[in-house]
Design a protein around this nucleic acid. Structure first.
Length: 352
DNA sequence: TCAAATGATTAGTA
DNA sequence: TACTAATCATTTGA
């Protein structure tokens, strides 16, 4: 094996008889005295190679050693390698050129975006945050779900990396094993380094197809997790009592114009631990339901009016009534109706 | 179990 | 784009 590479530099001719490497070997005095003798030598070697597997291990080892030491071995080996290379490898080589796999690239990109591959921080929580934003979620319950999502994503990530590592290790071990085996076998049969290289390529391709399956199933797992996470967020959760109180207080203290500005919505959202869009939803629902059934809400309105009045009184006794955010309309809601008990709201509020 | 309450979604409007 | 109005889907409480 050690001296094989330098034995494989002959380049022209395929047949043994007309092979320049062999011809050269025969002419330079190392190949025997006459043609008959040379043919006999080659015939002997080929016979020994053909029958080596019929022998016991010890005999085969001894024969192998004898073959390796045979004066014709390098030349013959060279020729056989070249024949093999020119016939089989050239055909296969052309066929096995593969374009870069678009599917694999897509999977890699997705795993990176979801935070499964690449750096641990960011991706997953960013995806979770995006999902949360898309679903308009917020609040403490949602943060529990969020952490649950991250925990599960991290679990997927861990499994993915463990499996990937296992595959890579197995691939390396198998490649080394096959290479050693082929190198060993190349002492008794024509295996060129090029062929070993090709075999390594085949092994790598096989393992990368397994890796692709792993990536695919990981992507599926992330997709399922994500859709479940979104579904969970889509489920309605009632706001907590305190949040409803805050929203109602604002609504009834601004009954003449229950349209909080963007800033007010943001502040209410912060106070209630909900999003601005949830505040908007709440006010939208509240306005329409209040308008539809003012009588039903009258009691609630009175209750909040009394509450606001009490707060205002407390604030005034402490000397800072002017700064109270709920003061402007808190005591005027009772005047915000027409004689038909219709609320006086802006023109864009369509009365039925 | 069921009606009421309630948060979210959707189509239409100004 | 913010809003109304209708509706859906889920939760709540009797």
């Amino acid at each position: 094996m050690d001296d094989q590479p330098r034995l494989m530099h002959s380049s022209h001719g395929v047949g043994m008889a007309g092979h320049p490497g062999l011809a050269q070997h025969m002419q330079d005095g190392t190949g025997g005295a006459d043609g008959e003798g040379r043919k006999q030598d080659i015939g002997d070697i080929l016979q020994q190679i053909m029958t080596i597997t019929d022998q016991s291990l010890d005999e085969a080892q001894a024969r192998k050693h004898a073959l390796n030491c045979h004066r014709m071995k390098p030349a013959l080996f060279n020729v056989l390698c070249e024949i093999k290379e020119k016939t089989v490898l050239s055909i296969r080589g052309a066929q096995e050129e593969e374009p870069p796999d678009a599917q694999l690239m897509r999977l890699d990109n997705m795993l990176l975006a979801e935070g499964v591959s690449g750096p641990e921080k960011g991706g997953g929580s960013a995806a979770a945050a995006a999902a949360a934003a898309a679903a308009g979620g917020g609040g403490s319950d949602n943060s529990v779900e969020h952490s649950d999502y991250r925990a599960k994503l991290s679990q997927i990530r861990q499994i993915y990396h463990t499996e990937l590592e296992k595959y890579e290790q197995a691939c390396n071990e198998f490649t080394t094993h096959v290479m050693n085996l082929l190198r060993e076998q190349s002492r008794t049969r024509p295996i060129s380094p090029k062929e070993i290289e090709r075999m390594v390529g085949i092994i790598h391709r096989k393992f990368s197809s397994i890796q692709m399956q792993l990536k695919q199933s990981t992507c599926e797992a992330v997709m399922i997790l994500r859709s479940r996470f979104l579904d969970a967020r889509r489920k309605r959760r009632n706001f907590n009592k305190q949040a409803t109180e805050i929203l109602n207080e604002y609504f009834y203290s601004h009954l003449s114009n229950p349209y909080p500005s963007e800033e007010a919505k943001e502040e209410l959202g912060k106070k209630c631990s909900i999003t601005v869009s949830q505040v908007s939803n709440w006010f939208g629902n509240k306005r329409i339901r209040y308008k539809k059934n003012i009588g039903k809400f009258q009691e609630e309105a009175n209750m909040y009016a009394a509450k606001t009045a009490a707060t205002a009184t407390n604030v005034s006794t402490h000397g800072s009534q002017a700064n109270s955010p709920s003061t402007p309309n808190s005591l005027c809601f009772i005047h915000c109706y027409t004689i038909d008990n219709e609320p006086i709201w802006p023109a864009n509020f369509h009365l039925m």
